[in-house]
Each structure stands twice: as C-alpha cells, then as structure tokens.
C-alpha cells in the first residue's frame, strides 16, 4: 500500500474546509453588502428607514430646477386600512424642503400596527432623496376605526441628474400586529 502524504492531505482538507466556512459566512455577508450596493446604485429604489439630514453647504442656492414628485400608497396583502396620499403630485424645487401627508384609517374592528416601507422609482433617484421626517421611521398603530395624518418631510438634492423630471415615492403598508416584538432588523 502506497502511503500518501497524510500531512499534506490534512493541510488540504483544513484549507478547503476553511474556504467552505468562509463562503458560508460570505453568504450572510451578502446581506449588508447588498444594502451598501443598494445605497450606491439605488437598486430597487430602496430608501433609508432612518432620518437623513442633508448637509447644506453655506452659500448654496437652491436649484431653480423643478421636478414632479408623485406619492403612492399601497396596502400589502389587502390590508384593511384606508391609506392614501393627501396630494398625489407636487411640483417641487430641488434643494428645498417640503412636507406632505398621508392619511390612514384603520377600517378593521381591532387595533393594528403597521410598518410603512418606502420605495422610489426611478431607482437611481432614491439616493438624491433625503427624508428628515417620515412615518416609515417607526411602526404606526391605530385603534379600530381610528384615523390620522402622517407626515413626510423631505428634500430632493440639486445633485439629481437632469435626466430625471419625475420621481415617485411609494409607501407600502405591511401588517406587523403579530410581530410586536420584532423591530426592524435592518435598514
């Protein structure tokens, strides 16, 4: 019987197993990497779920350029809420902060908690949108039949490329009543 170099084989096995473990970790590392990637490229029109305060450079004049900002409301899984933007479309000037409101009413006969998830189209425009205040930053709870106005305060940066003349911001409401303990795992 030939004696293969046991030590060498041992080393190869260790090395290969290490690759395996690292790649398993890499699979999970793809999760935060993907978020970074989304932030950089506007993939999926993902918008941050935490407030961003735009740094205004002193002396910077707001761009005179105007774009059309559209607002959409979507109920996931036919959520029994009335949910709609106060105004569907706003002409906005770049660099200037605006406030708009969404109206929500819980039509069901129990109290419910929802999480609003924002999305922007075209996706690449997302990185030029900063929200200082948003009802999507935390879960919203309404008693049966209760209604409220929810505010979004935002600014679109003058860095928005010329090729964009319209930007759509959507909010999708997800029912998270059963997941009261679950906070947002990621943003």
């Amino acid at each position: 019987m030939q004696a293969p170099d046991k030590k060498r084989i041992h080393a190869i096995v260790i090395r290969s197993s290490l690759i395996t473990v690292l790649m398993f970790g890499f699979g999970f590392a793809l999760v935060p990497l993907y978020d970074v990637f989304c932030d950089l490229t506007g993939l999926n029109g993902k918008v941050s779920l935490t407030p961003i305060h735009p740094v205004s450079t002193p002396g910077e004049v707001p761009d005179v350029r105007q774009i059309q900002m559209q607002f959409i409301a979507i109920n996931n899984e036919t959520l029994p809420w009335e949910f709609a933007p106060r105004e569907f479309s706003l002409p906005i000037q770049l660099g200037k902060p605006y406030v708009t409101h969404y109206r929500a009413k819980n039509l069901s006969s129990r109290s419910m908690t929802v999480q609003a998830i924002p999305s922007v189209s075209p996706g690449l425009a997302a990185q030029h949108l900063s929200k200082m205040e948003c009802f999507c930053f935390e879960q919203q709870r309404l008693e049966a039949g209760e209604e409220m106005d929810m505010a979004v305060r935002f600014v679109v940066s003058p860095s928005l490329p010329q090729s964009f003349s319209v930007m759509t911001l959507s909010y999708t409401l997800f029912d998270v009543s059963d997941k009261n303990t679950t906070q947002l795992t990621r943003n």
Binding site: N44, N76, I117, S119, V120, T168, T172
Partner: peptide, 8 residues
C-alpha cells in the same frame, strides 16, 4: 412586481 417596492 415585488411586494414593498415599485418598478417602472
């Protein structure tokens, strides 16, 4: 069509 996101 992706729940929670809009595409155009």
């Amino acid at each position: 069509a992706i729940p929670g996101f809009i595409n155009e």
